Simulated scan of single mutants.
Amino acid sequence: MPATGDTAPDFTAPLANGDVDSFTLSERLEDESPIVLAFFPGAFTGVCTDEMCTFQDRLAAFDDLDANVYGVSRDSPFALNEFRDQNGLEFGLISDYNKEIIDDYDIAMDFADLGVYGVAKRSVFVINGDGEVTYEWVSDDPGVEPDYDEVEAAVEDAA
């Protein structure tokens, strides 16, 4: 798992932003840093919906810091667009349908009792314009949300 000070693993994946576009982290860092990658286990679930809606509610604070927030999950880009629509999310959601980003960031978890494998642990990474991870938070408990004030402070430090 990339730790603070490490170079963030680069990736290209589908971006659900009302349409479906391509997202390449290294290309976006040139114009959109710092970037907040908020990994979540699955769209349309209670805690994940609360988390993404909280990021939406706090989006103005991230905008004021010239930061960009992206949610990341294993859901398809089409499901993520519906999730965005139903919850009024104004930021893009990255589809890691093939679990490549989750594996690169080493944050996979299973819900074996439900037959669900390889979803993202709830995690937040702040990445500066040089591609360096300046903040990382990973929870082994899918019911725990990040400390949003701490994430904002980390973004302010990275800006």
Rank of each mutant, 00 (worst) to 15 (best):
L59P: 05
E32F: 11
D113F: 00
T49L: 10
D141N: 15
N68A: 13
V72F: 00
E152R: 07
M52G: 00
F125G: 03
F40V: 10
V20A: 04
P142N: 10
L93S: 08
P34S: 07
T134D: 09
R74V: 10
T54W: 04
P9V: 06
A60G: 06
Y70N: 03
Y135K: 10
S76R: 05
E90Q: 12
G143E: 09
D147M: 06
D19I: 01
P77Y: 01
F44R: 08
E156D: 15
L15K: 03
T12K: 15
A60R: 08
T7I: 15
M52I: 00
D157I: 11
P41S: 11
F55P: 07
G71F: 04
D106E: 15
Y117P: 03
D103M: 02
F125Q: 03
L65S: 13
E150M: 05
L80D: 04
V138N: 07
E27Y: 00
E27G: 03
C53H: 01
D96I: 09
T24L: 06
A108Y: 06
D103T: 13
V126K: 08
E82C: 00
T45F: 03
E51R: 01
S139C: 09
T134E: 08
D75W: 06
F39K: 06
S26V: 13
S76Y: 07
E27K: 12
S76A: 11
E156V: 14
G115F: 14
Y135M: 09
V133D: 01
A120K: 02
A60Q: 13
L37W: 06
S22E: 15
D85S: 15
D104R: 14
N87A: 10
L25I: 01
L25M: 01
I102Q: 03
T49D: 09
D110M: 14
V36N: 12
P9N: 07
M52D: 01
Y148N: 08
R122S: 06
D31V: 00
G88I: 13
M1V: 15
V151K: 15
G46R: 08
L25S: 02
R122I: 03
L80R: 05
E90H: 02
F83V: 11
P77F: 02
W137C: 12
